[in-house]
């Protein structure tokens, strides 16, 4: 897994929030997204140490480009846990969401210290990636895991929450050229290579200046 440099954005100039006041967004959606954009920067559920670890995990699972305000992934996860949201199920041996996170972060730090003599947030990116890959494949044995399987924690809790938090954010929506919220107005043009005027144009689908112009003016 290598970081590519700074590739040209796929949907240059597209910001889904441009559509916020238009007919694609209703009041309840504006309210929900506004709350999300105003998520507190400081943790309310995690301790500062835990929060730092979550942030370093998120930076490896959903690495973000420079040059734009980052999606506050750790803060979004903290908010969800603070609120007490639940998936509604957990594998045998895994505690509920909050305890699972606490226990998993502890175990991750224990693994980092055992392997590299330092906490997870303090080791280099490559080593962090290595640890996360081991967790994903279940190749971890610290007693700090208790009855929880590292694989389960990676797939069903940690990486899941990170990915869901990132892709709950309008910045991520813009990045992948998704149309975003759509009510009352939905879509008209559904077939191959069809785009409504209120959808993002892809780089290469026309003259670069024109694509940018279209994307700046989706409404």
């Amino acid at each position: 897994m290598h970081d590519r440099g700074r590739p040209e954005p796929r949907y240059p100039g597209y910001d889904v929030l441009t559509k916020r006041q238009g007919p694609s967004w209703n009041e309840q959606t504006r309210r929900v997204v506004s709350q999300r954009l105003a998520v507190p920067a400081e943790p309310r559920f995690f301790t500062p140490d835990e929060f730092r670890t979550v942030a370093s995990v998120a930076a490896r699972i959903v690495p973000q480009p420079d040059g734009r305000p980052p999606v506050p992934v750790a803060a979004l996860i903290d908010e969800k846990l603070f609120r007490g949201a639940s998936d509604g199920y957990r594998p045998e041996g895994m505690p509920r969401e909050r305890e699972a996170w606490r226990q998993g972060l502890q175990a991750l730090d224990a693994e980092a210290k055992a392997a590299y003599g330092a906490a997870f947030h303090a080791i280099g990116a490559a080593r962090q990636d290595g640890l996360l890959a081991r967790m994903q494949s279940g190749d971890m044995t610290s007693p700090a895991w208790g009855r929880m399987s590292p694989q389960d924690f990676f797939k069903r809790r940690m990486a899941r929450d990170v990915v869901l938090a990132y892709y709950a954010h309008p910045t991520a929506w813009s990045e992948i050229g998704w149309g975003g919220p759509a009510s009352p107005r939905g879509y008209v043009r559904l077939d191959f290579d069809e785009r409504d005027p209120w959808e993002a144009a892809e780089a290469g689908s026309g003259d670069a200046v024109e694509v940018r112009r279209i994307n700046r003016h989706v409404g």
Partner: peptide
């Protein structure tokens, strides 16, 4: 916010 493209359609 402009709605140029939509406006052109309209």
């Amino acid at each position: 916010m402009t709605e140029f493209d939509t406006d052109r359609g309209s």
